[in-house]
Computed example of a mutant assay.
Amino acid sequence: MTFSLPGFDLDSFLQTTLAEDMGGGGDITAAAVIPADARFTGVMDSRDAITVAGLPVAEAFFRALDPDVRIERLVQDGDRVAAGTDLMRIAGLARAMLTAERSALNTVQHLSGIATMTRGYVDRILGTGAILLDTRKTIPGLRRLEKYATRMGGATNHRMGLWDAAMIKDNHVAVAGSVEEAVRRAKAAGIERIIVEVDRVDQIEPALAAGATHLLLDNMPPPILRGAVTLIGGRVPTEASGGVRLDTIRAIAETGVTFISVGRLTQSAPAADIGLDFTAVSVASP
């Protein structure tokens, strides 16, 4: 099964990651210790209750080194599984499987950690109507994969980069001279989506009058947020942002905001505890 993400080059990612691990010398341990025709079977399993993400990429790592490897995915990305669940069965050349193991596990552990944290936040706001967004606080080079993982956890992707919407913050306003001038310049440049960050209620009307199409309500406590949402009155979507935690997100969602953005989904998610145990099925003489 081919794994494809818009804007993500899977082949390049595989090659770069494997090259980082093998350097110019390859896997010297496997080459020295494991006969070339030895075969392994393996089971990847989760030691924690998780939301799964990254299995197709892990599969691609094994196939890159052993095109004839047999792989059976037992669950799918986006599935919620209990601790002790088998995720994938693998059978192929032992050297290839051992060489690809760490790259495959690193990817699944990282992406499943993001998906699992994301699902926890999504669960907290169920029934409120608020939509969870991710941010650009991603590891350089991994944005497409990390934002894929947040989708597997139930979030909606916000901006993929600096190119798909204008986001006017205080530093932009300081240089432009005012919110009105910053928005005017964005509109003059032909930008349709213009997000304006406000951290005080008195900034709302000027931003709307200037032509903001989305308001980011930054670091406002729930009582202030509720008043801001009432003032905006549905004229544009609203987004709560800044310092959102698992223990505070429900109260934020209940203010009526359209979106809540959480940077820690990609910035701070711990890796999921996932392992891969191998069994030798044939070992030839060296």
Rank of each mutant, 00 (worst) to 15 (best):
N106K: 01
T107S: 15
T107C: 13
V108G: 11
V108W: 11
Q109Y: 00
Q109C: 13
L111E: 00
S112I: 03
S112Y: 00
S112R: 04
A115C: 07
T116C: 12
M117H: 12
M117S: 14
T118L: 02
G120H: 06
G120N: 12
G120M: 07
Y121D: 01
Y121T: 06
Y121I: 02
V122K: 00
V122L: 06
V122P: 07
D123L: 05
D123R: 07
R124M: 13
R124W: 00
R124L: 10
I125L: 10
L126T: 14
L126G: 11
G127Q: 09
T128P: 01
T128G: 03
T128C: 05
I131G: 03
L132S: 00
L132Y: 04
L132F: 03
L133M: 12
D134R: 07
T135S: 04
T135G: 01
R136D: 04
K137C: 03
K137Y: 01
K137W: 00
T138Y: 05
P140R: 09
L142F: 15
L142N: 09
L142D: 00
R143P: 14
R143A: 11
R144M: 14
R144H: 15
R144C: 08
R144G: 12
L145N: 09
L145A: 07
E146L: 01
E146R: 07
E146H: 08
K147L: 04
K147I: 03
K147H: 06
Y148Q: 12
A149E: 02
A149S: 05
A149F: 03
T150Y: 05
R151F: 11
R151Y: 09
G153V: 05
G153F: 12
G154L: 11
A155V: 14
T156V: 15
T156F: 00
T156W: 07
N157V: 14
M160C: 08
G161S: 15
L162Y: 01
L162G: 02
